[in-house]
Design a protein around this nucleic acid. Sequence first.
DNA 1: TGGCGTGGCTGAAGCGCTTCAGTCATGCTG
DNA 2: CAGCATGACTGAAGCGCTTCAGCCACGCCA
Lengths: 362, 362
Amino acid sequence: MLTVDSDRRRRPTLDTVAAAVGVSRATVSNAYNRPDQLSSSLRERILETARSLGYAGPDPVARSLATRSSAAVGFMLPQGLSGAFSDPALSIVLDGLASTVDGHDHSLVLMPGDATGGPRPSIVARAQADVMVAYSLPDSAPALEAVAARGLPLVVIDQPVLPGSARVEVQDYVGASLAASFLLSLGHSRCAVLTFALHPDGVSGPASPQRRSAVPFRVSRDRLGGYLDTLEKAGVKPDNVPVWEARGSDRELGRLGARWLLTRTPRPSALLCASDQLAFGALQAARDLNLTVPRDVSVVGFDDVPEAAYSDPPLTTVRQPLADKGRRAGELALKLLAGGRPPRPTRLDVSLVERASTAPRA
Amino acid sequence: MLTVDSDRRRRPTLDTVAAAVGVSRATVSNAYNRPDQLSSSLRERILETARSLGYAGPDPVARSLATRSSAAVGFMLPQGLSGAFSDPALSIVLDGLASTVDGHDHSLVLMPGDATGGPRPSIVARAQADVMVAYSLPDSAPALEAVAARGLPLVVIDQPVLPGSARVEVQDYVGASLAASFLLSLGHSRCAVLTFALHPDGVSGPASPQRRSAVPFRVSRDRLGGYLDTLEKAGVKPDNVPVWEARGSDRELGRLGARWLLTRTPRPSALLCASDQLAFGALQAARDLNLTVPRDVSVVGFDDVPEAAYSDPPLTTVRQPLADKGRRAGELALKLLAGGRPPRPTRLDVSLVERASTAPRA
DNA sequence: TGGCGTGGCTGAAGCGCTTCAGTCATGCTG
DNA sequence: CAGCATGACTGAAGCGCTTCAGCCACGCCA
C-alpha cells in the first residue's frame, strides 16, 4: 500500500547509502549521475540498497546548490492565474514552452502577477529558477529589475528589448494593419476597436486619447497602433474611431465592450478585436442586440486560436504561431542556460485568415 | 538603463558583503532575515553596501538547503498544460491555490502530465518543492509513488484517499444525482451522458460497458455513477443510457460528443454533461442540428463556471465551489508544511443551479 | 622486467547559506 | 560596587550534494 510518510527528520542521504554499501559518497553520487564511472554490478548494488533504505535519489536542492543550476525556468505573468488562463492564447504559448522545457528535464516555476502588471519583486528574488521568461509584462515592470538584480538570463515574449535579454515576438503591428486594411478593402470605414488592457490598472471602459498614448504593454500598443495608423492612412481620423479597453482578454469582457461599441451612433459597421476571445464576446454581443454577423457588422479577431474555426460564424482573424512562440522561448531559455549569448530577436510572422465573420459593407 | 548581466561567474555572496562591511557573515544574514538581531544603523549600512555591490539577497537555493525548505508547492496535473487550461474549472482552482500560496511567499512549481495521466516520476523526483498537490490524477499514478518515495507531504484534490495525505474533494456523486433527479422530475427518462475522460488513454467515443467500469479517475467515476445510479433507481437501465466519453473537457470535444448523442434514435430528450465546458459544446451541437434548447433537448452541466450564467441559454448546472477548492488545498498544503498532521478530508458541498437550459419534457 | 595506460574508486574541497551557542561590552539593580 | 540581565555581534558546524585530482591494482607492450 502506498503511504505518504512526511516525516522528514531522518531521511537517508547519500552518506547513509554509501555507509550501507561500504563505498564512498562519491561513488553513490556517480551511480546516479555517471553510470560509466563505476562497474555496473556495483551500481546495481547501490541502487538496490538505496531502494531498500527508502532513498529516493539525490536531494534536488542540494544538487542544485552543488551544480549551481536549479533546472527550472521561471515564467512571469502579467496577471493572476485565473485571468491569465481564461486566455487560450497564453495557454498555448505556455504549453509550447512547457513541452520544450519538460523535454529537457527542467521544470516550470510560475510567478503570477498582481495589480502592478507583474510578479512582486520578492517573489522573483526567491524563485528557484536559473532563467526567467517574461510574458507580456508592461515596460519597466519591477519584476524585470529583480531579474536583472539577480543576474539571471532573461527571455522576453511580446515585449520591448532589454539589453542582454533574448526575445521572441510577433509582428503585431503588421498583423493589426493587415486586419484593418482588409476591412477597409471591404468598404468598412466606420470601424471600432475592442482591445485588452492598455494600462495595468485594471480599468475597463472607453479609451480616451490619453489612455491611448504611452501604452506600457507593447502588444496592446502595437495592435492598437496598427489599427489606428492604417485607418488614418485611409483618411479615418483616429479620434473618430471608438475604442473600448477591456481590462482583460476574455469573452465576457469582450461582450461588455462590444455592447458599448455597437450601441454608439452611428453604429460601427466593423469591429477590430485585439484577441479572438474579445471577438467571441463581440459575436455574442451582436447576437444579444439582434445583429447578424457579418451582415450587420463584421468582426475580426487576433490570434487564431483553434476555436476561431468553430465559432458561429467562424472568425476572420490574424493568425500568429502561438505554440511556436512558446517553443521558441523555451529553446532560447535553454540556450541562454547553456551559456549562449542572446541571439537576435526571433520575429514570428502573422497572416490573415479569412472566414465568415466579415463581409463587404452592406 | 536596465541591463541583464547573466555572467554568473563572479556574483557576490554573503561573504563578499560581509568582508566589504567588515562584519561576520552571520550578521549579514541577519540583516536580511532577522532585522531585530542587529542595530538598524548597521543593517542599513549592510543593505546599502549590498546594493552597491550588486548583491541581490541570499541565494534561494543555498537558503533552501540550509533551511531545508524550498518555499514552493508542486502542482501535479493529469495532462499537458494546454489541455489543462482549456478547462476553466482547473484555472479557477489553480488560481485559488496560487493566491493562498503566493500570500505566504511560496511559489508554484507546475508539473504537467503526459499520456500516463500524470507527471513523469523523474520530474517529481527532481522538483524543488516541499509539498505536492495532486489534481485529479488517476488512481495509482506513478507520480504519486514518486511523491511517497521522496517522503513529501501530499494533498490530493478530487482523488481517493492516500494514507498520510490530506484531501479536499467535492460531493461529485451527490451532485450528479442531483442533476439526474432534477431531469427525472421534469419527466426526462430518455437521458444521455456526456463525460470527460474515464481512462487516461486519450480515447474519445461511445463508452462501452467495459470502459464504464473500473474507471481510474475518481471524479469521472463518481459523476458517471451518480447519473447512472439515479437513473437506474428510477427504472432506467444503465445499458440503455448512451454515454459518450470525451478525452478532455473542452467545448469542441463536447460538441463532437453531443452531436453523436443527439443523432441517436430515439433522440435523448436530455443531456447530462460532466462539465460546463462539455455542456457548452452540447449547446453548440444542438444549434448545429437545428434543435432548440430547452424545447427540444434539456442540457445540464457541472461546475457552474462563471460563464454558465451567460451562455445561450444560461446553463442549468451543478455548482461546486471551485475557488474554495483551490484555497483549501493551499491551506492544507501550508499546514502540512508547518508540520501538521493531515486533517480529516475537507468535503465541499454542491448544489443545483436552475437556469434556462432545462425544461419539462415536451 | 620496467614502464605505462586504464578502469574503478576515494578524499576532500567546495556550493552559499542558516543557526545556535557563545563572547563581550554596556547599563541597570540593589 | 558586585552581580546580572540585555543587546549586538561572531565562530563554526552543518544542510546534502558534485567534482576533480589522485590513488591503486591490473594487464599489456616492448
